[in-house]
């Protein structure tokens, strides 16, 4: 179930250096939102002809709905000064999120940059605990560590410049951990971040024989399945390659269904 809602901004401030958090009063969407889903947002600070922008949901405690963003593009920069009290038109919650099963193998989260946001939401809803790998370029790009630590997760931070946690890529830290646990049996991966990272994790979990869920971030038009702009190659039930829409069949996919050829990472 998805709907269109006029959401009022109740809070809008710096989240950590370089990132901002928007909190909406959006009681109807917030009541339905699940981890990994997104809202398609009309940004009134842009011209009325501008496309909506998709944002993954960071937290949802009805009536409040939170998103985190980094002001980098035209849309997010225009949003920066939206004052509390202003209304934004949202369509949501959209897409298929992460499965939230009470039982299963030990969960392993891998986040790149603000891809951590939906995983934080998932940590809140998933009644299992495990290891969370959080990677970014610099210490500034490491967000939400406390969200996991406070819920009893084993958090491993990596930065490419070594300014926080281990130095290197998040996949290196992940690989070392996997090698060390050797015969511990399969785990279940939940990941969100840049496409290259999702692909790398998909390949690793295929070799390991783990169930893996990865979230893809794609430019979108409609956000509701109509325009076919956001497609990704997948293998269908019959084994044939087909297109799936990241806004509707995704953004979260079973990594073993994804076919990466022909798509620029």
């Amino acid at each position: 179930m998805r709907l269109i809602e006029e959401a009022t901004i109740v809070e809008h401030a710096e989240f950590t250096a370089g990132y901002r958090r928007l909190v909406f009063q959006a009681p109807r969407i917030a009541a339905l939102a699940a981890p990994g889903q997104f809202v398609h947002m009309r940004i009134p600070e842009l011209s009325p002809e501008a496309l909506r922008r998709p944002f993954s949901i960071y937290q949802s405690h009805a009536p409040y709905l939170h998103v985190i963003y980094k002001p980098v593009g035209r849309g997010t920069q225009a949003m920066m000064h939206a004052p509390p009290g202003e209304t934004y038109n949202l369509i949501g919650p959209l897409g298929r999120g992460f499965p939230v099963a009470p039982d299963g193998p030990p969960p392993v989260f891998v986040a790149g940059g603000y891809g951590v946001a939906p995983l934080s939401f998932l940590a809140e809803r998933l009644p299992r605990r495990g290891v969370a790998f959080i990677g970014g370029r610099t210490a500034q790009d490491i967000l939400c560590v406390e969200d996991f630590a406070s819920r009893g997760w084993d958090v491993r931070v990596t930065t490419e410049d070594g300014s926080r946690g281990e130095r290197g890529r998040v996949t290196e830290s992940f690989d070392r951990w996997v090698a060390a646990r050797k015969d511990a049996g399969p785990a279940e991966l939940f990941a969100c971040g840049p496409e290259g990272l999702m692909r790398a994790l998909g390949e690793r979990t295929a070799t390991l024989g783990w169930q893996a869920w990865v979230s893809l971030d794609r430019p979108m038009g409609c956000g509701i399945g109509a325009c076919l702009a956001c497609v990704q190659h997948v293998r269908d039930d019959g084994g044939k390659v087909a297109w799936a829409r990241c806004c509707t069949e995704g953004p979260v996919f079973d990594a073993k269904d994804l076919v990466w050829d022909g798509v620029a990472p």
């Binding site: 011209s47 002809e49 501008a50 496309l51 794609r218 430019p219 979108m220 038009g221 325009c227 076919l228 702009a229 956001c230 497609v231 990704q232 297109w243 022909g262 798509v263």
Partner: peptide, 12 residues
């Protein structure tokens, strides 16, 4: 149809 990217925003 075509591979992505399939859509880009333009002025208006």
């Amino acid at each position: 149809g075509n591979p992505p990217p399939r859509l880009v925003e333009t002025p208006a």
